[in-house]
Design a protein around this nucleic acid. Sequence first.
DNA 1: CTGATAGTGAAGCATTCACTTAAGTATCAA
DNA 2: TTGATACTTAAGTGAATGCTTCACTATCAG
Lengths: 116, 116
Amino acid sequence: MLHYQEPLDLAFQALADPTRRGMVDRLSEGPASVSELARPFDMSLSAVVQHLAVLEASGLVRSEKVGRVRTCRIEPQALTLAERWLGERRASWERRFDRLGDFLAEDSTTSQRKKP
Amino acid sequence: MLHYQEPLDLAFQALADPTRRGMVDRLSEGPASVSELARPFDMSLSAVVQHLAVLEASGLVRSEKVGRVRTCRIEPQALTLAERWLGERRASWERRFDRLGDFLAEDSTTSQRKKP
DNA sequence: CTGATAGTGAAGCATTCACTTAAGTATCAA
DNA sequence: TTGATACTTAAGTGAATGCTTCACTATCAG
C-alpha cells in the first residue's frame, strides 16, 4: 500500500513528536543552527538531524548551509495549512451546533416528514 | 524509553492519518455510527474500529453505545488545543518577523542601494 | 599544517503502526 | 427461535519510526 503523502499527513505526523514540536517551538523564536536545535535534547546529534529531516520533508522547516553551519528556520505556511484544517472542522461543528436548537424545536426525523 | 503521551502527541498523531482525518471531517458534520463512518473507506470494519480507538484515545472523538449501535461524535476541545498550539507558534514567528522588518528597514549593509 | 567544530550517512535494532483474517458476542426484527 | 446486523476481540504481518553507534567529510581557527 504505497500512498502519496499529502502535506497534511506530513505536517501532522511531524508535529506528533514532542522533540520535533520542541524544535518548531524553538524556531518560532528565530533561526537556529542544528547543534543549537539539538542542545536541549538528550539524544545524539544524528537523531536530531533525522527529526530535522522529517520537519523539512513536511515543509514546516527549511534550512540552508553556509560554511559548516546549517541554519534552520520555520516555514509558517505549512503551519497555517494545518491550523486552517482544524479551524474549518471546528467551524463546521459549530455551525451544526448552532442549528441544533432549530432541529429540536421542529422535532422531525430527518426525511420522514410530509407523508399524508 | 517509556513516556507519558501528552494530549498534543496523541492529537497530532491521530490527525496524521488521512483515514482518521476523513472520519473527523465526517463527524464535524454531525454524529455517526461506526458502520456509517466506515462506509467511505476501502478497508475492513475492524481497521476502522482501530482508527476510531486512536481518535478516542486522543480525545478528538467520543462515542457511546445504545443497543448495538455505537454513535460517535467530535470533541471540539481537543481540536481547539491543537489549533491553539499552532496559532501560538505562528504568532511568535510573526512577532519576530515584524521586528525583523523594522530592523531591515533601517539596515543597509547587507543589501544594495537603489540605483538613482 | 593540525586539531577542533559542525554536520552527514549508513547500518542496525526494538517498537509501533496500519492493516488483515477469523472467530466471537450482543441486539433487533420477523 | 432464527437469522441478519452491528460491532468486538485476538492474533498475525510487513512497513515505518525513533533511536543508537561508528565512520566519514567539510570548514575554520591558530
